[in-house]
Amino acid sequence: MKRRTVADVMTDKVVTVTARTPFKDIAETLIAGGISAVPVIDDDGRVIGMVSEADLLRKEEFREQFYREGYQPPLRARLRHPKGRKKAAGDTAAELMTSPPITISPQAAAVSAARLMDAHDVKRLAVVDQDGRPVGIVSRRDLIKLFLRSDDDIAAEVREDILDRGLWVDTSGVVVQVRHGVVTLSGRMDRKTETAIAIRMTGRVSGVVDVIDELTWKHDDSTWEAR
């Protein structure tokens, strides 16, 4: 079974800005590229941060919240929003970016990218080589593409890579059916523990939304393991 990596799903055309790139140039870069964020690189080409649409919008958000119609809030109110105030005052990528950046290796498992995004509540990651230089961008949208595999492709991988080659047991009695990414395994295997392994490995196949277990077995060897 081929593990899907970040390199399999990432966008390898990376648009970057430098720490000195002005606010308006960053905005133009995002609009021209149809992208929502760009990595910020230093003079050696290493990623040092990320600037997103949200970072740019903080300037207008802060102005609207605190300074509409010339209103000047009390100092204590401004101090309660130090991050927003700092971003709002930023004029270059270095002042606007989120740093340190959340990055990932192209060799990392795609599922690791998903977990990293979830853990840090970000929508995209800079993909960097061993020297910290950008080689791609992976977004939530890229990861969702893993679930767009055809049912036939998923069924073929489950049949050939999991059942025929991965388990090293007789799986001739197993039937694989896939509908809208949901895999149903039915039929009969020799041991109960073997069916559990088949279900677990099938669930790891890229594109599988869920696995329905309709397998039966000849011998219940789960009680043997408990002894």
Results as ranks from 00 to 15, higher is better:
1 M>P: 06
3 R>E: 12
7 A>S: 15
12 D>W: 01
12 D>I: 00
18 T>M: 01
19 A>D: 06
20 R>C: 00
22 P>F: 02
24 K>M: 12
24 K>V: 10
26 I>R: 06
27 A>P: 06
29 T>E: 14
31 I>L: 12
38 V>D: 12
46 R>V: 03
48 I>E: 07
49 G>E: 08
52 S>Y: 05
52 S>C: 03
53 E>G: 09
57 L>Q: 13
60 E>F: 13
63 R>H: 11
69 E>D: 15
71 Y>I: 09
71 Y>S: 09
71 Y>F: 13
72 Q>D: 09
75 L>N: 07
75 L>K: 14
76 R>V: 13
85 R>T: 09
94 A>R: 13
99 S>H: 12
99 S>T: 15
100 P>S: 10
101 P>A: 15
106 P>I: 12
112 S>W: 01
112 S>Y: 00
114 A>G: 09
116 L>I: 14
122 V>I: 15
127 V>L: 05
130 Q>W: 02
133 R>E: 08
134 P>Q: 11
135 V>E: 07
138 V>K: 10
141 R>I: 03
143 L>E: 14
144 I>Y: 13
145 K>N: 12
146 L>D: 10
150 S>Y: 01
153 D>W: 03
153 D>M: 02
154 I>V: 11
156 A>F: 00
160 E>M: 03
162 I>R: 04
163 L>D: 05
174 V>F: 05
177 Q>L: 03
181 G>C: 06
186 S>A: 14
191 R>C: 01
192 K>W: 05
193 T>E: 04
198 A>T: 02
199 I>E: 13
199 I>H: 01
205 V>D: 01
207 G>V: 07
209 V>I: 14
209 V>Y: 03
209 V>A: 06
213 D>A: 04
218 K>A: 14
220 D>G: 06
225 E>L: 14
